Amino acid sequence: MKALQFSRTGDLAALQVVDLPTPVPAQGEVLVQIKAAGLNPSDVKNVLGRFPYTTLPRVPGRDFAGVVVQGPAELVGKEVWGTGKEIGFLRDGSHAQYITLSAKGVALKPTSLSFAQAASLGVPYTTAWDALERSLVVAGTRLLVIGANGAVGTAAINLAKVRGAQVLAAVRRSEQVEALQQRGFNAIQLGEPEGLSAQVNAVFAGGADVIFDTTGFWLPGAVSALAPFGRIAIIAAPVDGHVQLPALALYRKGGSVVGINSLLYGVEACARMLEQFGKLFDDASVPLPSGLLESPLEEGLARYAEVNQGGADKVILLP
């Protein structure tokens, strides 16, 4: 089978298109013929060596959608999707023509989603789902999502709207504000961190109950915009991993910080998440993804380089 593979880390030149034997599923596993695979920034970082536990050589890739060709009889021939912490790091991932994983690690693909659309959602939507769950976003929660135009931010505002939360989307550019408003979301344009509190309080008197910072740069400013007993969920940090946290202000508000890391969840846990929010696409509660850049697997090296350079398109590799 054709696959992308790297045998060392440090630069993207390590990634190659190779021919590998088609994997054989073990007992309790499935063999999935991959129809589409998402390319996430974490896949690029994996090749660059940002995940020291990755074993080599390795086929990268976490998100996929495809058809089960071997495994339990009730799954053979089914269209499925999946993601999780093992694949691409501790066992070969989805940037190939086939993948093996636990039979409990795949979920039936929503019929409303194409293979490419399903493959674009794994990491962003499981991350957003986990953030909303663990920061206790329910009906009526006043939620601020910083970076609401990104993949995870978009997932968060879509899922929060279904939960009945009061959503305030924060983005950098005026045209992004207009686009969100056209979709029915309340939105603000981010300025300086010290001004965030006034912007949020103009919408949510007393502050936001939950602030989800998808960028990693707004933690200090978010504390001042937080309501008493509020929660701040974070998924990223500056390159050096350090921020200046106004701890006095945080504890005076009774606030808490919730770290969100999708790599804490294996394929079986992720499959349960996919089952829960996947039905929201079939009943039209959540809009279908659009604007995907579909690319042959053989052109994956170029797509990796574009994502590494900050390309805005959501890339889908097609074996």
Rank of each mutant, 00 (worst) to 15 (best):
F6R: 12
R8A: 15
T9Q: 10
L12T: 11
V17T: 15
V17R: 11
T22A: 13
P23T: 13
P25F: 09
A26Y: 08
Q27C: 02
G28C: 05
G28A: 07
E29A: 03
V30F: 13
V30M: 00
L31S: 06
I34L: 11
K35Q: 11
A36L: 00
D43F: 02
K45L: 12
K45E: 10
K45Q: 15
N46W: 00
T54A: 10
T54G: 03
P57N: 13
P57S: 04
P57D: 05
P60T: 08
G61H: 07
G61V: 01
G61S: 01
G61M: 02
R62V: 07
D63F: 01
V68N: 06
V76M: 03
V80I: 14
W81D: 09
T83D: 09
E86G: 13
F89N: 12
R91I: 06
G93Q: 01
S94W: 07
A96T: 14
T100W: 01
A103E: 13
P110E: 11
S114R: 00
F115S: 12
S120W: 10
L121E: 01
Y125N: 11
W129K: 05
L136C: 06
V137D: 02
V138R: 07
A139V: 10
G140Y: 03
G140H: 10
T141D: 01
T141G: 01
L144N: 04
N149W: 01
G150W: 02
V152I: 14
A155D: 12
A156H: 11
V162Y: 05
G164S: 04
Q166M: 11
V167W: 08
V171W: 10
S174M: 14
Q176M: 01
V177G: 04
Q189D: 03
E192D: 12
E194S: 13
E194C: 05
G195M: 14
S197C: 05
Q199F: 02
Q199R: 14
A202G: 15
V203C: 11
F204N: 07
A205R: 13
G207I: 10
I211L: 06
T215L: 15
V223P: 05
A227D: 09
R231G: 04
A233H: 03
A233P: 00
I235G: 00
D240N: 15
H242R: 13
H242K: 15
P246M: 04
A247P: 00
L248H: 14
R252W: 14
G259R: 00
L263T: 06
L264G: 04
Y265G: 00
G266W: 06
E268G: 09
R272Y: 10
E275V: 07
L280N: 08
L280T: 11
L280E: 03
F281C: 11
D283R: 12
A284N: 15
P287D: 02
L293H: 04
G300S: 09
L301V: 11
L301H: 06
L301P: 04
R303K: 10
N308G: 12
G310F: 03
G311W: 09
A312F: 12
A312R: 13
D313E: 15
